[in-house]
Amino acid sequence: MKLALFDCDGTLVDSQDVIVTAMTRAFDRAGRPVPPRPAILSIVGLSLVEAMRRLGDDDPTFPAEAMAELYRGAFHELRAESEFFEPLFPGVRAALDLLTARKDVVLGIATGKSQRGVAAVLRHHGLEGRFLTIQTADDAPSKPHPAMVLQAMEAVDVEGADTVLIGDTSYDMTMARAAGARALGVSWGYHARDLLMQSGAERLVEHPDDLLPAMDALWEAGR
């Protein structure tokens, strides 16, 4: 059996506008200067408190936990608004359909989102039940710590050589390699191609149509 382990934000869904809006509200409410959009997108994938520490330049006086709570509140407000939307990237659903049909592959998620956030995304897009293991910031240390990947592999009894982590950030690639899994980068997310390769991506795909061939090549190479 093989495990296709997906990041969520920036890999499955395009949540950048929602994240930037929620972060802007959080910093505004704290009376702090809002970080530039590229800085906000650079921390997508980290657990929330760690993300806030990065945005606070790792200043020990920066109230990362309080800012994380402000962000959670802002995000929940946005989710209740009628125009809230985290769309799947074009081609992702078709790729998931093909993978779901494979008898030798199980699907999983490893994300900096909460379990509640992942459940909302899957429910909205009718993807409940597709992912056999869902590892989140509620369950493990922040990326790039390998715990999420290790826990996912243990949950479905799959070895590292048979696990491919698909993600759009350097944190995903570093996490995968640290866990002994294969690292597959996607170009449509929030970190640059060069950074993905420098962080350990073994392959980089430009479109979801390319995911299955790339995964098969990595699984074959791991034999």
Rank of each mutant, 00 (worst) to 15 (best):
S114W: 09
D216H: 09
P213Q: 13
H125C: 11
G129T: 07
L132K: 08
R37W: 00
T111E: 03
G189K: 02
Q198R: 11
R102N: 08
A68P: 14
A74S: 12
L195F: 05
G189V: 05
D59I: 01
A201G: 07
R37E: 12
L99W: 07
V118G: 09
F84V: 09
V44D: 05
T169M: 06
G126K: 06
I19H: 06
R223T: 14
L218T: 11
I19Q: 07
V118S: 12
T163K: 03
E86N: 10
E159T: 13
D59E: 04
A30P: 10
A74R: 04
L107I: 12
D59H: 00
V106Y: 01
D14P: 11
D172G: 07
W188R: 04
D138I: 03
V49S: 08
D9H: 06
P35F: 02
A201H: 05
A179F: 09
Q115R: 14
V118H: 12
E206W: 00
L211M: 04
G167M: 06
T111Q: 05
A74K: 04
G45C: 12
S114Q: 09
E65W: 00
V92H: 04
D28V: 11
Q115I: 08
R102C: 10
R54V: 15
R116H: 13
F89W: 01
A110N: 07
G31N: 14
P63A: 01
L122V: 09
R182A: 06
P146H: 06
A161Q: 09
I19V: 10
S114M: 10
L150A: 13
K143G: 13
P33I: 03
V20P: 03
L46G: 11
W219P: 08
L96A: 00
L3Y: 05
M148C: 13
E159G: 13
A183R: 07
T100L: 00
G126C: 07
E50D: 15
H145C: 02
G108F: 00
A221R: 15
D104L: 11
L212Q: 14
E159Q: 09
Q151S: 09
A181M: 04
P60T: 05
L70P: 08
V92I: 15
R54A: 14
L204S: 11
E159R: 09
R32L: 15
E159L: 08
D168A: 01
S199R: 07
G189W: 01
R29T: 06
S187M: 07
L88A: 00
L48T: 15
G160M: 05
L204V: 15
I43T: 13
V149W: 07
L132M: 04
K2Q: 11
D9W: 08
Q16V: 08
L212T: 13
T111W: 06
F131C: 04
D210L: 00
L127E: 07
A22L: 05
A68Q: 09
M197N: 01
A119I: 05
R32N: 03
V92Y: 05
F62I: 12
A192P: 13
A94Q: 15
D210V: 00
K113R: 15
D216E: 15
H207T: 03
E81D: 08
F6Y: 03
A110H: 02
A110R: 00
D194S: 15
V13H: 01
A119N: 10
F75P: 00
